[in-house]
Structures are given as structure tokens and as C-alpha cells.
Amino acid sequence: MEETIYIRMRHRVQIRPNDTVLLKDIAQIIAHERIHQDLQNLKVYTFKAQDNNIIIIDVMEVIEKITRAFNSVEVQAIGPSQSIIEVIYQKKRMSVPFFVLTWLLLFFGSALAIIYFHEDVSMQATQQKIYTIITGRVEARPLIFQIPYSIGLGLGMILFFNHVFRKRLNDEPSPLEVEMFNYQQDLDRYVSLTENKESMKRIDGH
């Protein structure tokens, strides 16, 4: 008799290193009571030392494991077709200096942005104004502000795209990589719709 098992992969799962990932960790399961328990404790993945901190488990892998362990079952997969497993090496502690730095960065950045807006978007007038506010003196060329500002411009860009810290502590992609991916997806969607003659049908047949 064929039995139907319904599984729904969880989107994102966190594990500790050296954990064994069971089916119940990465998926919701509906099955007959008789095999439910065994199904829950089915080993899906064992952590390996050389693993990155992100592992993707595809639903096909899971179905293969289930059909190998239980014969005469039919697996119905619902929802996401893969799970993202995130290995947490140590409890993330919040770094206070980073927080303070980011806070100050946003604070002074917004202050500068508003002064810039009020000064009729003239960066030179903005810098002269800030010089006067801080030191109380008037200076036509506040180089002590302008040179760090110029260096900061480049730093900010690098920071945003995160390319200096190439030895990334985690495998999270940089915004640039995500952006390249999105652009490629847009192109793929465009060609798959426009190059396929069957995808659109017009009244006059052209």
C-alpha cells in the first residue's frame, strides 16, 4: 500500500557545529502515525568540519533519503524547495564599539545631510558652516574637514560593498553579488518570456 507523506521544508534553520540534522529540524511532516516517529528522526545531514557556515539542503535530497529508508511511500513536497541551514559557531555577542561607531556615523551623517540641504546643496558652504559651528572661527578653506571627508567618501563606498574584508567571517554575499544575481535573473526572465513564442498569444496571430 502506498502511503503519502507531506513535507514542507523550513526556510531557514540554525544549528550548532557537529550537530546531526534530522528531518524534523528542517521540515514539517505529515504522515501516518506508524512511520511518523521514524520519519522525524531520519538523519538528513551530518555536519562536516570543512563546511561553510551556510548549507543548502534541497528537497530532492530529502525525498531521496525518505524513499530509500521507507519503501512504498509517496512524498509530496509543499512550499519552499530548499532549506538554508546556518551554522552558529558561537553565540553572537553584540560588539559595543561597533555599535557606538555606527551610531555616531549615522548621527553626524544625518546632521551633515540636513545642513547640506539647508545650505542649498553646496558642500563647500556646508563645510565652512560646520567649521564655524565647531571652532567658532570663520575659514574659507576648512581643509582639516575636507581631507578626511574626501578619504571618507572612498571608505564609505568600500564599506557599503564590503570588499576590503574579503576574508569574510561569514558566507553572506555582498550587496554587489546579490545585485549581479538579481540583474541576471531579470535578464533570464526577459529572454524566457520574449524568446518563447508560446508564452504570448495575440488576437491577430502575429
Binding site: L104, L105, L106, F108, G109, S110, A111, L112, A113, I114, I115, H118, E119, Q127, K129, I130, Y131, T132, I133, I134, T135, G136, R137, P142, I144, F145, Q146, I147, P148, Y149, S150, I151, G152, L153, G154, L155, G156, M157, I158, L159, F160
Partner: peptide, 30 residues
């Protein structure tokens, strides 16, 4: 920033204070 640009205050700090401020502003704009 709004108050600073509209009311012309001055706090008479040494000009070296401007280095981190400039850096922060630059990073923000960058």
C-alpha cells in the same frame, strides 16, 4: 544639523575635532 544650520551656534572646540567629523560625513556620503 537643522539647529546648527538655522541658528548659527558656535561651541569653540579645537579644530582637530573636525577630523573625525569629516571622516564620518565622508563615509556617510560615500
Amino acid at each position: 544639523g537643522g539647529m546648527g544650520s538655522l541658528r548659527d551656534p558656535a561651541i569653540f572646540f579645537p579644530s582637530l575635532t573636525l577630523i573625525p567629523l569629516g571622516l564620518a560625513g565622508g563615509i556617510f556620503v560615500g
